[in-house]
Structure formats: structure tokens, C-alpha cells
Design a binder for these strands. Structure first.
Lengths: 156, 156
DNA sequence: CTTGTTGCAAACTTTTTGCATACAC
DNA sequence: GTGTATGCAAAAAGTTTGCAACAAG
């Protein structure tokens, strides 16, 4: 890697400009705002990103949010996962902290887990099926057994 | 298990009547048709189920398909998974052959894998997060490295 | 100046809901 | 007969698109 992170929290805090430029894409305030929103919200639907951006009194059109999310994802700056049966949620890409998600059907809690936990599965899938998972896109639904979840009957 | 499968292919081929009855639900031709469609199609979206049912010249309303899929899923006769970023796909539940899915982003191929392959992951998640995955709901996106996939550049 | 990007409004796809009718039990 | 299930039509939710105006490089 030849990246030179200016800030520790986002390995590419300045880089996103480079990344977009390198692809011949333009740097617009809308793109900066959407990226910032995704980073701040951690896990946000297009609608939530839109609301967040507008809350800062910066009016950005919803369709621009959709187009921008697509652009940023193509550029590898963000990724999406499906944390509910409805809208997708976007999160910033951080190569040093790649993770996937656990979603509890009971308490709806979302837990991020380092992709390292998938190593054994990756190996099995590669060996048996020649398949290489996109770990960061993975969402595992299930239930947490902890105190967070009152032990009610399991209804989806 | 005290089930007594009448037919080998569907452990519960007759049972679905029992299952619905036990829940105080009614046995309607629509429910029978939708369940049959899900079983025959293997992995089908609500729309595909609807089309399949209608193709047999049995007109069933699309909203009935949605409501029926929900009923059947609540009853544990079918499950859904997300094999694309769009519509969910339903499949019949077969306790003896529980599986999850691999989906290749390049060739779109869907592979069913016995949930046994998830044992190590399950253990890790249980130990470290007290989390019990719903294995049958899992979909793993990625790419197959085999000959099926021309080695093009990876574009989502 | 040139071309990518945005805003707006409308279309589209997928899913849900209200209500009167029909039918399973 | 009673109450659940269905059909229909309309609404909701989420996403995409065409096009004129705008602005980044």
C-alpha cells in the first residue's frame, strides 16, 4: 500500500479525493457530504444518509444520494450490506478493520465482527467450492442469547 | 422427530395440513398452490411464485401470494433468503437438508451448501458473542474462481 | 469550454393495507 | 353461522430515469 493517511481514524480521510480523481470523477460538495454522513452514521440507509445531510441544512436531492452512494461504492470508499429485509445500509470501508455483521432478530442489535472470524469458513468454501466470499458484505441473521434479549419465543 | 413422511422427497408432504391446522389456520387451495410452487421452483421470488401459480391457470392474487408466503414462513414450512439485492427468494424447509447459499456476483450462480460447513463459525459466534445464527437464512456473496467464471475484472 | 453532476418530477418495482365478499370449518 | 382468507384497488416504500440547468476541471 502506498497510501498515506492524513488522519488515523480514516485511512483515506484525504484519500477519497485522490480516489475519485484517479477515476476521473469530480469532487463535489454533495459527494463530500454523503461520504461524511456514511462515515458518521456508521450503518445508514440511503434515506438516513439523506436526512443526515439535510439536517446540516445542506439540501441534497435524494436521487443524488442514490447516485452518489453508487459512485462511492464503485470507487471502493463505501460498501453496503443488508441489515434488514428492507433497505440496504451503507458503511465506510476501512481496510484495516474489515468486518461483517450480526443482526439479532429479537432485539435488532447489530454487531460488527472482524472478518478474521470467517477464516475457517473461507477455507472450506474455497477448498470445496472454489468460492471466495465477499466477507464485508456478509450479514448473519440470528438471535443473541444474552441478557439483552428477553427470552421470548422466537418470532421472526 | 415423530414425523411420518408420506413421501420421501418432502418430509411433511402431507404434514403441511397438520402444521396449518395445529395453528388454527385454514387449508385453502391458494395455500396449497403457493406451497407447491415454492417446492417446485426451489428458489423463487414472490413474483415468480405468482407467475408459476397463474401458469397453472389457477388465478391467485399477488397480494394473496404475499400473505400466504408470510403465513407459510411463520408456520415454518418455508424460509426466505436474499439471493440478490432485490427481491427475497423463498424455498421449502427440509429439516434433513438444511442449507445456506453462495451467490457468485460474476456468473450469478447459486450454490446450496449444507449448514454443517458453518459449524466452526457457529462456535466462534456463540463463544465470543453469544450469538446463534439462523444458518438457513444466510447468503454469502462472492465469486467462484472456477472455469464457470471468465476471469474478468471484479465489478459488482 | 466540455463533460460530468445535480435537481426535479415523473415513472417504476416491490410490498402493504383497507374493505367488501367468499368460503373453510 | 362465524370468523378467517381472498380479491381488488389504492397507497406506501424504495429506487431509477429523462432532461434541462449547473459547475468542476
Amino acid at each position: 500500500m502506498t497510501t498515506d493517511p492524513a488522519h488515523p481514524d480514516h485511512p483515506g480521510d484525504q484519500d477519497w479525493r485522490e480516489t475519485l480523481r484517479a477515476r476521473g470523477l469530480r469532487l463535489t460538495p454533495q459527494r463530500e457530504l454523503v461520504l461524511a454522513a456514511v462515515r458518521e452514521l456508521r450503518h445508514a440507509t440511503p434515506d438516513q444518509v439523506h436526512a443526515h445531510v439535510r439536517a446540516r441544512s445542506e439540501a441534497v436531492n435524494l436521487s443524488t444520494v442514490y447516485r452518489t452512494l453508487e459512485v462511492l461504492e464503485d470507487a471502493g470508499l463505501i460498501k453496503h450490506a443488508h441489515l434488514s429485509d428492507r433497505a440496504p445500509t451503507y458503511h465506510a470501508v476501512d481496510d484495516d478493520h474489515e468486518h461483517f455483521h450480526l443482526v439479532c432478530r429479537r432485539c435488532k442489535k447489530v454487531t460488527s465482527v472482524a472478518t478474521g472470524a470467517l477464516a475457517p469458513l473461507n477455507e472450506t468454501l474455497r477448498d470445496r467450492y472454489g468460492f471466495v466470499p465477499d466477507a464485508a458484505h456478509l450479514t448473519v441473521f440470528g438471535t443473541c442469547e444474552g441478557e439483552c434479549c428477553p427470552d421470548e419465543h422466537d418470532h421472526d
